[in-house]
Design a protein around this nucleic acid. Structure first.
Lengths: 346, 346
DNA sequence: CGTCGAATTGCATCCGAATGCAATACTGCC
DNA sequence: GGCAGTATTGCATTCGGATGCAATTCGACG
């Protein structure tokens, strides 16, 4: 019977605004605004009155309105492509937490394939993100548009041809060099390479890195097939390698750990081979399953934690100071000598 | 020398607004606004003029400003807790894509532990998200605040005590019942259970589900330990089980696949046991590694695809129509009879 | 060619918070 | 007590697009 005019019947309670709080506290709207800012000038008494009113009304500053006037959305876009690569989930969480600590929210974009970036770009621009951290490659035209719009971009595990874009990456070539050195040093003569999807920069870097080093070491018995980073294609790829090569190669270099695991299973199950006595198999990434006792994959682990922190910080710096020059950081991978391959030393 | 007044020197080009486009096209701002809406009335001629001007200036409607006036941010919050559970990355990508198709953006929040939700809640409210999809539990007070604010919430794989909140979940109890039935039917007498973290609802449901069914089947030789969903604790937990029980139990029921894999490795490596002849081990989730040949885990697979689509759609419906009553959907898991356990039939 | 109704278009206002500037209150000091 | 100097506070305006309403144009038809 009382409170008849209360609109809560329809559950349609309008959220309190700074004006509501101002009226409640008997002060001006600007005062409320100032109380909810860091460096703004407001007396103790004012703070107390306003906070009391705000709590009473359940007031929360509207980040949308704030973003409109300050020209800062405090949101960054994080772009990932399909995660068959088991390794990205960690990246995502670490990034999000890092940004969160710095008061920045993450707008997530998931691409079906690494190539379709068109609508995504449009959306990111519409939402006026302050910066972009991407694990998918944008084409030069898109990158130019972003630069023109003054939106800083940091590439994760890929680099742009022109030097204008900042990036954080794991030095895949160096990692492959280590793997190849170990394998060659241990006397393997014939090699199989399992590449990733054709549009994956990471796969290209790893694969050509391995090929180059093999060539440098004077080895030309190299067979190449490719998969999609998934377990099943790892298995299929191993079979394909055997067929193409005529017999199992001495060593297989997979573009990631998951495919390496697929190769191991196929070698054991379908071909009855002993790993590593009959065939050595190596991967890349250092994901969780690579450590499982049944595989114990020899691999190169990406220093994910340092890489994500570095990437987030680099982006935040450029948001604060847009004139900062581009920077490319390459992190060395961590060699992991597992028992899936015979190695040169140690 | 020409274009001296161009501000592009500092790279500080201001983005074009609807007023700029209007001026360029010689029409009113409202006209521009209408051209960029779906159901608005605008003649062909108007559309063409405006679009031409917009393209020339590289105009993109400002989603922030739009959100302010329409009271719709077109963003939903997706909340996840730490992803040791290998299984969430897929969920995240599927959700994001689903929302994306529907024109809704995803604001990602990653909790360190499932418990700390306070600041997250605050942020979600500040950003005026239209809805919340969470795989972490909010406490009743928080849920009440959200309901009061009129923000629809859908819980992913957990349910609230009071029936007011919508949820989508996999029927963990039913899954555990199947697993236990199979194990009991195959004649296993003593059981070990490896639970997950204490604050994980999912773990609680699975663990008590298994316990209940074991009790119903008249079995009381049950030993319980707990881990954190990770591989390492799977290994440790198996050893603990053996110690607590005095000998390896006939069967081990792990709260997820990753820990089941840890148990398998520990049983084989540390205790020289044959899986499944000496000990049967089952998990839950149906994650990728469970299918690896070395493990081939008997498990219950969550129908992730249907669950995520259902959850996204349910949330979107409630955003469109806030008065829709809460709904709880439970999906049956898909039994996967692997070779890590001796089973009753088939 | 005139008339009526529907489709377009423009005007003015609103969303909610931030901020430059001016007015006012307070502080310390002689 | 008076005064300069600083700290608070309020006023008015701004950000960029959406939308109700009124004005205008267009089309069809008799």
């Amino acid at each position: 019977m009382p409170r008849a005019a209360d609109k809560s019947a329809k559950g349609e309670r309008k959220r309190a605004t700074s004006y509501d709080v101002a009226r409640e506290a008997g002060v001006s709207q600007s005062a409320v605004s100032r109380v909810f800012q860091d460096g703004a000038s407001a007396s103790k008494a004012m703070r107390d009155r306003v906070m009391a009113a705000a709590n009473k009304l359940g007031y929360r500053p509207n980040a949308i309105a704030r973003g409109l006037i300050t020209q800062r959305s405090n949101m960054v876009a994080v772009v990932i492509s399909k995660l068959t690569n088991l390794y990205y989930p960690e990246v995502l969480v670490m990034l999000t937490q890092r940004f969160s600590e710095r008061g920045v929210r993450v707008l997530l974009f998931a691409l079906e394939r690494e190539s379709d970036t068109v609508t995504t770009l449009d959306q990111m621009l519409q939402y006026r993100v302050d910066g972009i951290l991407t694990a998918a490659m944008f084409n030069p035209r898109e990158l130019a548009a972003l630069e023109k719009a003054g939106i800083p971009v940091v590439l994760y595990n890929r680099t742009a041809k022109d030097g204008r874009i900042s990036s954080v990456r794991c030095d895949q070539e160096e990692g492959e060099r280590w793997l190849v050195d170990q394998l060659v040093g241990a006397g393997h003569k014939s090699y199989g390479i399992v590449a990733g999807p054709a549009d994956s920069i990471v796969s290209i870097e790893r694969t050509t890195g391995a090929q180059t080093e093999l060539r440098n070491r004077g080895i030309d018995d190299v067979t190449i097939v490719s998969g999609d980073y998934g377990y099943e294609t790892g298995r299929v790829s191993f079979a394909e390698l055997v067929e193409k090569h005529g017999s199992p190669p001495d060593a297989v270099i997979a573009a990631n750990d998951v495919m390496a695991i697929g190769c191991i299973d196929e070698a054991r199950e379908a071909f009855g081979l002993n790993v590593p006595n009959d065939v050595s198999i190596v991967g890349f990434d250092g994901v969780g399953p690579a450590r499982y006792a049944a595989y114990d994959v020899t691999t190169v682990r990406q220093p994910v934690h340092r890489m994500t922190e570095s990437a987030a910080d680099m982006l935040l710096e450029r948001i604060e100071n847009p004139d900062l020059s581009p920077e490319k950081r390459a992190f060395s991978g961590i060699p992991v000598a597992g028992s899936s391959a015979r190695l040169a030393r140690r």
